[in-house]
């Protein structure tokens, strides 16, 4: 079946079975592999993307339900990799293995759009849904706070 998708402000038509999770459409059909597969059940956050500006788990979003919606992936978060969240991640050298970080950054950027002046506790709550197996949590926390500063 054919589906029309708007991803990172571009229009795509994909031919996949209905019920296919957006995650696998991005990764296998569109070569947008920045969105990562971690658990497939919406528990780890590695596959986080923005759908109409809201952070969502792309492994839980069936392709037929996201037609016409505005989808943003890590590749489209900024033109040149210079979104304040990306800059903060770079400044603080956050990643260890790096695998979960695009999901972390997508969660952080959606959160900061909603709450540009978060308290430390609000940052911790907002990021709690994303697992980092290397446990780079200290730096993630600092980077979200730094990005909030940059956004001011």
């Amino acid at each position: 079946m054919k589906f029309d998708l708007i991803i990172n402000k571009k229009n795509y038509t994909v031919d996949v079975e209905d019920g296919t999770p957006l995650l696998w459409v991005l990764r296998d059909e569109l070569e947008l592999v920045g969105t990562k597969f971690g658990c497939g059940i919406g528990e780890c956050g590695a596959c986080t993307v923005h759908i109409d500006g809201k952070a969502e788990r792309s492994c839980q979003q069936m392709v037929e339900l996201v037609e016409g919606k505005e989808i943003t992936t890590i590749e489209g978060l900024s033109e040149n990799g210079d979104h304040p969240v990306q800059k903060a991640w770079e400044t603080l050298d956050v990643p260890q293995c790096g695998y979960c970080q695009s999901g972390q950054m997508m969660t952080a950027s959606a959160f900061l759009r909603k709450n540009p002046t978060p308290s430390p506790e609000e940052i911790r709550m907002a990021m709690h849904g994303n697992i980092c197996r290397c446990a780079s949590y200290n730096r993630i926390e600092k980077a979200v706070a730094l990005a909030a500063e940059k956004l001011k």
């Binding site: 992936t73 590749e75 970080q101 695009s102």
Partner: peptide
């Protein structure tokens, strides 16, 4: 010195890097 991860740019921009990304 404190040197950034050499893969920092591809990591923060979602470029293919990992085994799962290989095609």
């Amino acid at each position: 010195k404190a040197i950034n991860n050499v893969d920092i740019k591809p990591i923060i921009t979602g470029k293919p890097l990992f085994g799962v990304d290989y095609k």
